[in-house]
């Protein structure tokens, strides 16, 4: 069973509680995480400093001078028990421009040639070519599949703005191996196929990385300078429970959008729509498969 019969409340240090709905990378668990996160925010439990929702669990950090652990856990369990059956969740649809098989991620793959776990063989020169072959399809087919579903954001973080998403269409299972030795750098805003192929990850800063790259976005994932309007209130605008649809673009579009991003005039908002996601309907359709 994906969902634990009884939600686990585990210690995460002396002023933080980890609440875990299950141990699998399932959307079913993430829907609960999103709903619980919203319910905690709407509750009036005192002393909560912050909540960090990640895939299947949430960390609740609190001020032990305001509320004791016993009292906090009791209150959280009360909120949990009052949560109604999951029918719908607020969820934005974000149309995210993405240049698949671009020269930046190609260059990065080349620079880390020796870190790759497999013999490229068969003329594969990049991560995406390898992934296509590995999954028995052409690069074009992989792009079509990848951009043909909406991706549910299950976690934000690791580094600032780094986000992880799972495909809402469970038949989209693009799988790939991890790097043998992690890359020492990754271009910011590059996208990669996560472990076991059920996740997509977007890198936000030029950090190390261990999963194969498939393309790059002209959009900033993290903008500490807060130049573009979308970042006005926060250097990260994406959040858990958003849906991302990748819009394949080519070089010209990439350069045009990138120019605006650097100028601080990019209209991200035109690509973002606030919607309600019908969880019930979705589960009726796919419940057994996620």
């Amino acid at each position: 069973m994906v969902v634990y019969k009884k939600t686990a409340y585990r210690p995460l240090g002396e002023k933080s509680v980890l609440i875990e709905f299950g141990d699998e990378p399932s959307l079913l668990l993430n829907f609960r995480v999103v709903a619980f996160n919203l319910a905690i925010k709407e509750s009036d439990i005192p002393g909560i400093v912050e909540v960090n929702p990640v895939i299947r669990s949430l960390a609740v950090i609190y001020d032990p001078k305001v509320i004791s652990r016993e009292k906090l856990v009791k209150e959280l369990k009360k909120v949990e028990s009052e949560m109604k059956e999951l029918k719908e969740l607020p969820s934005r649809l974000i149309k995210w421009p993405f240049w698949y098989d671009d020269p930046y991620t190609r260059e990065c793959a080349k620079a880390h040639w020796d870190n790759w776990p497999h013999d490229y063989g068969g003329g594969c020169e990049t991560n995406i070519e390898f992934l296509a072959k590995y999954n028995g399809m052409t690069v074009d087919e992989l792009i079509k599949k990848h951009s043909g579903t909406d991706w549910w954001v299950v976690a934000v973080g690791f580094t600032p703005g780094f986000w992880t998403a799972a495909p809402l269409d469970p038949s989209v299972r693009i799988v790939g191996p991890k790097y043998k030795i992690p890359r020492t750098w990754t271009p910011p805003n590059a996208g990669a196929i996560g472990t076991a192929g059920i996740f997509f990850c977007m890198y936000s800063i030029r950090g190390a990385g261990g999963i194969p790259l498939i393309g790059i976005s002209p959009w900033n994932t993290y903008e500490p300078e807060q130049k573009n309007r979308i970042f006005k209130d926060s250097p990260v605008f994406i959040k858990v429970g958003d849906r991302v649809r990748f819009i394949p673009i080519g070089e010209d579009e990439y350069r045009e959008i990138r120019r605006k991003v650097e100028e601080g005039t990019c209209d991200y908002e035109a690509n973002i729509k606030s919607e309600t996601f019908n969880v019930k309907e979705y589960l009726e359709k796919y419940g057994g498969k996620i």
Partner: peptide
């Protein structure tokens, strides 16, 4: 094992502090 691999130290990502 199917989702996180054979390395037993791997878990499905969760929050750290």
């Amino acid at each position: 094992q199917k989702v996180v691999g054979k390395d037993p130290s791997n878990i499905v990502d969760d929050p750290t502090i």
